[in-house]
Amino acid sequence: MPDDSAAHAAVSTDVAIIGAGPTGLFAVFECGMLRMKCVVIDTLEAIGGQCAALYPEKPIYDIPGYPAIAGADLVAKLEQQAEPFAPIYLLGRRVDSLAQMQEGGFELRTSKDEVVRAKAVIVAAGAGAFGPNRPPLNDLPAYEASGAVRYMVARREELRGKRVVIAGGGDSAVDWALSLKDIAKRVTVVHRRPKFRAAPESVAQMEAAAERGEIDLAIPYQLHALHGEGGELSHVELATLKGEKRMVPADHLLAFFGLSMELGPIANWGLGLERSHVVVNPATCATSIPGIHAIGDIATYQGKLKLILQGFSEAAMAAHAIHPQVFPGEALHFEYSTTKGVPAE
């Protein structure tokens, strides 16, 4: 499990990795194999990036060695692979500023006013900083703080035996309805119209489950209000455009209205940008600022493919390019992992 127990003090590390998606997680492993310690910072409350937030149950078919693997399972494997190197995860916060220090390296400040000092930086922020589109409901922060209202699910076992209302009409809403119908006490899907934007096969499965009584479909309704005390949810109030209202007993509301994505503060760091992407040297993933490298979907160069597997390759190239900055004057005697092995936990 990610541990941010060191989050409230200034942290010094070899490499600060911005982004805890698959590419950022694999960068922890690649840096670790070269004896470089990492701090990983992400705006989401859990690791995994878009894999965890958007399609945790969807199979991915182009990961070498896995004919098919669900997004959540891939994230779990990457977390396990990075674990021997003891990364520090600072989750649920944004990197607000990045400055070069006179003595070398960089100082990063987060939205929780934490300071991270690093000898090098890897930007693995995917499409940039992103967060959930929140429904306009009263008292929402209190329910978010208690976990009654969520925008992603890290582990579905947390919802076993719970009454869950899912709002949205895309893949995330439909996938989680199907995933939770045998886990939760009751699942109610709320959507403003009968047509869903999810994969047709998944929608058909959900509608069949509804016909069997395994899922409740509240259509055409929208979220209207939350009811409960002290941040503990008891009911979700729904309403139609005609003003018809319905109360649904609920312990949790999962709101899947998509993610708002933007470069955020990264746009102001002086990196070479091209159409909201960071231009890098394809051989090293170095940006226009020495010591800062960009990998994954946020990086661009001629011939770039937006594939997770290419991000993995970029993580390896960036780690090897950073090694001389972390260990100046030390020759890198690269060994294959089959001969070098992985440090014991």
Score class of each variant (00 low, 15 high):
78 L>Y: 10
28 V>Q: 04
72 A>H: 13
24 G>S: 09
9 A>F: 12
59 P>C: 06
35 R>W: 08
76 A>R: 12
90 L>D: 01
37 K>C: 07
63 I>D: 00
82 A>N: 04
76 A>E: 06
46 A>K: 04
27 A>W: 11
16 A>H: 00
86 A>M: 07
67 P>W: 06
48 G>R: 05
10 A>L: 10
81 Q>M: 15
49 G>N: 12
74 L>N: 12
22 P>V: 05
91 L>S: 04
84 P>E: 09
72 A>F: 06
2 P>A: 14
85 F>W: 12
36 M>C: 03
3 D>T: 10
1 M>W: 11
44 L>D: 00
19 G>S: 15
52 A>T: 14
10 A>C: 11
37 K>P: 01
12 S>H: 08
9 A>D: 07
21 G>R: 05
45 E>W: 15
84 P>H: 13
30 E>I: 03
84 P>K: 12
59 P>Y: 15
78 L>K: 08
3 D>K: 07
90 L>E: 02
35 R>N: 13
68 A>W: 07
22 P>T: 05
27 A>M: 12
35 R>I: 02
81 Q>G: 15
88 I>V: 08
92 G>A: 08
34 L>F: 06
14 D>Y: 06
78 L>R: 07
50 Q>P: 03
72 A>S: 15
26 F>L: 12
9 A>S: 11
26 F>D: 04
25 L>N: 01
42 D>P: 02
38 C>N: 11
2 P>E: 09
44 L>E: 05
32 G>W: 13
42 D>V: 02
62 D>V: 14
40 V>P: 00
50 Q>G: 02
55 Y>M: 11
84 P>G: 11
88 I>P: 00
47 I>V: 15
37 K>L: 06
69 I>V: 14
51 C>P: 02
22 P>C: 06
26 F>R: 09
43 T>F: 05
79 E>T: 13
